[in-house]
């Protein structure tokens, strides 16, 4: 059962409810980093990595600090229960993500300079990327499309983070491939740049709608 749920989360996050084309999360890198396949791969990998890590850490913060049902604060109040801190969700998630991104940047710079040079310029943009805060919020809100109306489990959250990032990577690479080809085509002056990228994105979204009938 658990495996089936994980599988469905992956299929939904990558294909059916793709983060970019169906949920409209992370459109800035979708338009900004899709000129070249190489930079698309770099950005996509960086996003996948941060999304997976952010899913894990925000889940822990939410479960053990904010949610009164499972909060460890309850141990210190002598049975009076933990305070409901869920209203701090947005601010704590965004701070955790900002700190995480900063740490990853410092760690890579010191330990893996080659990876840092490859991902480096994309990392600072990550703190305010809506796909990352988006996946963190989605994790604690459940996955209504497959009938999970409560918070996801830890494994499910990380799976959604990785799969969402993989879906992102897929779309970025496809888009970059199309845009590299499009440079060779004559396009009316007014359609150049973002407009044609929008129309291409729309056609891709239409194609991805075909996945929505997948059922298990």
């Amino acid at each position: 059962m658990e495996i089936k749920v994980l599988f469905m989360i992956i299929i939904y996050s990558v294909l059916i409810q793709n983060f970019v084309l169906s949920r409209f999360l992370g459109l800035c890198p979708f338009f900004g980093c899709s000129q070249r396949i190489s930079s698309a791969i770099g950005m996509g990998c960086a996003i996948t990595f941060v999304m997976a890590l952010a899913s894990a850490i925000t889940w822990i913060v939410y479960t053990y600090l904010l949610d009164p049902a499972t909060s460890i604060v309850g141990f210190f109040t002598e049975g009076n229960g933990a305070p409901d801190l869920r209203f701090l969700r947005t601010i704590s998630f965004i701070l955790v993500i900002a700190v995480l991104v900063q740490f990853i940047e410092m760690f890579l710079q010191k330990k893996v300079p080659s990876l840092y040079r490859a991902l480096g310029i994309f990392l600072p943009l990550m703190a305010t990327n809506c796909a990352i805060l988006g996946v963190a919020v989605l994790n604690v809100e459940g996955f209504t499309a497959i009938g999970i109306h409560t918070k996801l489990t830890f494994i499910q959250s990380v799976t959604q983070g990785v799969a969402g990032g993989a879906g992102f990577l897929l779309i970025l690479i496809l888009m970059a491939g199309l845009r590299e080809k499009m440079e060779l085509v004559t396009i009316p002056e007014s359609m150049k740049g973002v407009p044609i990228a929008c129309v291409t994105g729309g056609l891709m979204a239409l194609a991805f709608m075909g996945f929505s009938g997948l059922s298990f």
Partner: peptide
């Protein structure tokens, strides 16, 4: 009202504005 339509409308509106500027 599908996601695809949102992309199309945005694309054409930005293009129209660019055409006006040009």
């Amino acid at each position: 009202i599908l996601p695809a339509g949102g992309f199309f409308i945005l694309g054409f509106l930005v293009a129209a504005l660019k055409l006006y500027d040009l």
